[in-house]
Design a protein around this nucleic acid. Structure first.
Lengths: 208, 208
DNA sequence: TCGGGCCGTCATACCGAGTAGTACGGTCAC
DNA sequence: GTGACCGTACTACTCGGTATGACGGCCCGA
């Protein structure tokens, strides 16, 4: 029976390319990854890759937007749930950290793209704008929760957008150091808990 | 009068190449930066660049090791100073954050290299090992201070190497989002203070 | 039932552009 | 005269992307 279509409108063939590309880009980054590298992941050749995608940049964009959309889909409900800001922030951080580990390839590539965007450059195409919009929207989820925590008197009063920077830096850096081949589920939970404790402690208003 | 020789044995010419390369690599990353890009920074051509450096990879390595050595030179004395662990940690974080902003180009490239290294790949040459050693040595500075804080009872008891990961992630991510063209010294201090407060709060043992 | 046509899939060969690096020669200061 | 410096022209190679053809499966008509 056929596999479920992914949200990028992919049949199984396109999805295969997407996942192979995520692995390849994770390894070498966009510029140093060749179409042959992606094809090699599937024991295929470039003809197969170009059957499903117009260009290398299109493949990269699809990997990145899939990663960011996955993250948004997981974190937005947590951000918008009921509950005090501290608890919601902890859950958002835990979930984000977990995804950096369990969706390592796609999230690693999404982080690579965020890093490219800061320089105003990346694969030379126009749709990078979508990535920027989603990243800003995502960052605002955290800033809004921080702002609410400040109104509740539980979080320190620094500029919420600034407060969000170290949080996302810490979380995104997981994709740099975490090796998914080495750890199990229990380790994922342990690390996610540590990150939640770190971030909440770092933003909480102290009474010392 | 001649400029001071840099520690890489550079005369002014070689230092010019180094600084131009730092800017160029910051903009586009190692793979997407050409030797022409570096030469363009100096309104020169490749002949000039190749007069001072054997290869593109050698230039990159020089930029990266300069960045990491600068950081080690600043942070190691703070790590090894007298004082309780909390205070030393705060100073280390503040100084690291400041350097991510004030030495943005070199530190950005050093961070790029760290990210490449995690994948076991990078510019295809052998001396990447030195970078790995310095990075681990650097990370251990933080881990040691965290361990001492745990012995003093002021920091939470998590594994010090794990505790260091979000710290360095937060700090290194500054090179991704901070634009040195937009801010002044006062902003640098404000952000550095925020990061110190965030990290110390995040690692401090809570009594709530 | 069989054969032909069509379509999706994918490998191969090729082209053009770009880039790392080299060789060489010119200029200038000492 | 020599050497440092550096620009120019060039080579070799890589890689993104294209064109083409083969193959297998499916469908339909005879």
């Amino acid at each position: 029976m056929t596999r479920e279509l992914s949200r990028s409108g992919a049949g199984p063939g396109r999805q295969d390319i997407l996942e192979a590309a995520a692995v390849a880009f994770t390894r070498n980054g966009y510029d140093a990854t060749t179409i042959d590298d992606i094809a090699d992941e599937l024991h295929a050749t470039k003809g197969r890759v170009y059957h499903y995608y117009r260009s290398k940049a299109d493949i990269f964009l699809d990997v990145v937007s899939t990663g960011i959309r996955d993250l948004l889909a997981e974190i937005r409900p947590l951000a918008e749930a009921d509950g005090d800001a501290l608890a919601r922030l902890a859950r958002m951080v835990r979930r984000h950290a977990a995804m950096m580990m369990t969706r390592n390839a796609f999230q690693r590539v999404a982080v690579q793209a965020v890093e490219m965007r800061r320089l105003g450059q990346g694969p030379r195409y126009e749709s990078l704008h979508d990535i920027v919009v989603m990243r800003d929207e995502y960052e605002q989820l955290f800033a809004d929760v921080v702002a609410q925590g400040q109104r509740e008197g539980t979080l320190r009063g620094t500029d919420p957008r600034l407060a969000t920077k170290p949080v996302l830096g810490a979380l995104n850096w997981i994709t740099v150091w975490y090796d998914p081949d080495l750890a199990g589920d229990q380790v994922v939970d342990q690390i996610a808990d540590e990150y939640a404790e770190f971030v909440v402690g770092g933003l909480r208003k102290g009474d010392r």
